[in-house]
Amino acid sequence: MSGAAVFRDGAAVRVKSHFKPGHVRTPFYIKGKTGWVERCYGEFRNPESLGHSGDGLPRVRLYLVGFHQQDVWDGYDAGSKDKVFVDIFEHWLEPAADAGA
């Protein structure tokens, strides 16, 4: 994979909520949640291939994605500015309408 990142800094993104069998690094709790791209870290070998003895190629872009805690957890203090950041590979992200960053 090469070229410009699909998602720019600040872009609203939602984490895809599908189940993919095998080794994935997208945690369950963040699937289906909407946040924003904090930054793009560059391209890395794909753990979903590496985990099954593949070569991890083509490399995939990895993003630091931020989420408001109250958007992730029911009952998290609504007045809080607390955030959770997760490192998410590009193919797990889709554009979302609202960033809220």
Partner: peptide, 11 residues
């Protein structure tokens, strides 16, 4: 072996 392989085996 790589880290993701042993992770997968644990998972």
């Amino acid at each position: 072996k790589c880290t993701d392989e042993t992770r997968r085996a644990r998972e």
